[in-house]
Design a protein around this nucleic acid. Sequence first.
DNA 1: GCCAACGTTGGC
DNA 2: GCCAACGTTGGC
Length: 152
Amino acid sequence: MAIKHWLMKSEPDVFSFSDLKKKKSEPWTGVRNYQARNFMRDEMKTGDLIFFYHSSCETPGIAGIASVASAPYPDPTQFDKKSEYFDPKATKENPRWFLVDVRFEKDLSRPITLEEMKNEKKLLEMRLLQRGNRLSILPVTSEEFETILKLI
DNA sequence: GCCAACGTTGGC
DNA sequence: GCCAACGTTGGC
């Protein structure tokens, strides 16, 4: 089975790609959207490659490459009453939210901006660029992945 | 099950 | 800060 490719958004003010590089690996806590959860729980495999995307910042775009570093497991923050991600409806017997660990993979020679991707005709169909898209985790096709790397 | 109200995301 | 898009909630 070939590896899949993903794009995961993060606000760099909260957790940036350089934060990931420092920490090497990070549990992707706090996803509270069912589609995004399902990608992590049902479709991600260890070794899948990830575009680490910076959103809600001065220059939105891809900051670097990461990878899926664990099998899915319950997001511990859903059980933590002190966490902003606490979910009173989740139980340990029946967890509602799952996550994977995300690992630093490699730097890019420079970030790839959202604007550049919008300007590439081959990426017209990319989910990231469709209007109204707000999902924080998105699948990326192998073709899109290669096309984006060639923008540098 | 419908749908209005509300909250969040994220580019600009 | 604005606002379009869209997900969730809750009354009925």
